[in-house]
Design a protein around this nucleic acid. Sequence first.
DNA 1: CGCATTGTTGATCTATGTCAAGGACCGTGG
DNA 2: CCACGGTCCTTGACATAGATCAACAATGCG
Lengths: 243, 243
Amino acid sequence: MTAHLATSETEAGCTTCKSRKNGLCGRLSDQVRERVAARAQIVSYPANRRICGGEGDSSDVVILRSGYVRTQHHTLSGRRQIMAIARPGQTVGQENEERNEHEIEAITPVSVCRLERLEFEQLLSREPGLCRALCNQMVTRLDETRRLTWILGALESNQRLRAFLLLSRNWMDWAPQPDGTGVLTMILPRRDIADLLATTPETISRLLRQLHAQGLIEILSPRQFRLCDIPGLADGLDMVIPL
Amino acid sequence: MTAHLATSETEAGCTTCKSRKNGLCGRLSDQVRERVAARAQIVSYPANRRICGGEGDSSDVVILRSGYVRTQHHTLSGRRQIMAIARPGQTVGQENEERNEHEIEAITPVSVCRLERLEFEQLLSREPGLCRALCNQMVTRLDETRRLTWILGALESNQRLRAFLLLSRNWMDWAPQPDGTGVLTMILPRRDIADLLATTPETISRLLRQLHAQGLIEILSPRQFRLCDIPGLADGLDMVIPL
DNA sequence: CGCATTGTTGATCTATGTCAAGGACCGTGG
DNA sequence: CCACGGTCCTTGACATAGATCAACAATGCG
């Protein structure tokens, strides 16, 4: 279980980076982005590998190039809660500060830009553009985390799952059809869905069957759902579902 | 139900402001703080008054001078979830962006500095110090919101209440005694505790009695608790409780 | 072809939401 | 001084959503 596997790519990786127009990087000017990149190291991780947090950790700041990571926390009793899922273009780790409360793990294979925390902090002071972009991103993350808080606190599990399916359209493969339905490719296994929505894989499974029985979705395969009745799925959520 | 009641204080209110050393303002240099204050209007609200969010709203940015506010959201079915509680020195409203998803209400009587959103955004671009301070604050808020997400998702209600009591020491009146116990003055009514912890006032009441029966707390009055056994209260929370 | 992982289904039990009633406390007005 | 209404808190009875445990099916991999 080595720390991580460095790729052969050089540091001038922005040109090949598909998310240089997204998230944090997308809000930086080309010069600032290059100056950040000059201090970053590109690293890849396989699915389920720990990226930061937990025990002996270099506490770096990480910008996601590709793939998805989960910010989570474990109970001694084995319970896990996923607090956030980060997409390409988002930063991870700088919000962890001194105490390493959360573990951050790859969901899919990921590629990241790693920066040492200290260097990142210095860059932040020197580059107002970076600071502004980070601030904007933090607003977005806060908003997303509050939405999850709302989902967990105010909705029952059936509603949670429906909200999750609808929100997933924003960051998973979503193929809308002319008839208003669409096919969603779920990247999370049942266990992760459950730990995000604070329930169990068994319940997720049962609820999916129930949504199917109600004609709201079709289960094409364990990881592919057709959302047949989007207004029906959104019913009673009292929630702004972007997209 | 008028919008709000302006106080007689002038705009040079920083000198009289007890939280000018806390939160956002505490991280600004004196000059920057003065320049921000020059654009702010000091306003007071009684308890339970809406401060921003909801229907017709000026969508200002607000810095809390004194008192506490809650960021919350309602279901059509009447369920409410409190997503965050802000203390003096914290900003509120700038994270709301365009869509006004949350309502923000005074818990206690509050005094705030109001800034128009546009002016605030301009200040943010002109003053790197403000941007840096805001960025730091957003990190803190994100952290707190994630902690709430954790509490709601991973803990059962008994544990939620214990975590809440322990965390409350950081921002409510907390009088520690030499013997290791201490008296906590609860500023939230049962209803608010319930809506923060995603349960009901009835359950909160029962759980408090239960903690009392276990010798963990003493209920001096509905709003005053002696925390008798702090390690006992923290038991099984698997959580970093600051302080 | 095992073997491990992931997903599904069934049976059971309990924590807690809901409804209903009543108590404690406070301010107001007679 | 008391009666009144309001808010907040507490207690009891009851129903049920969903966690847990256990078994098994489906899938993928060496």
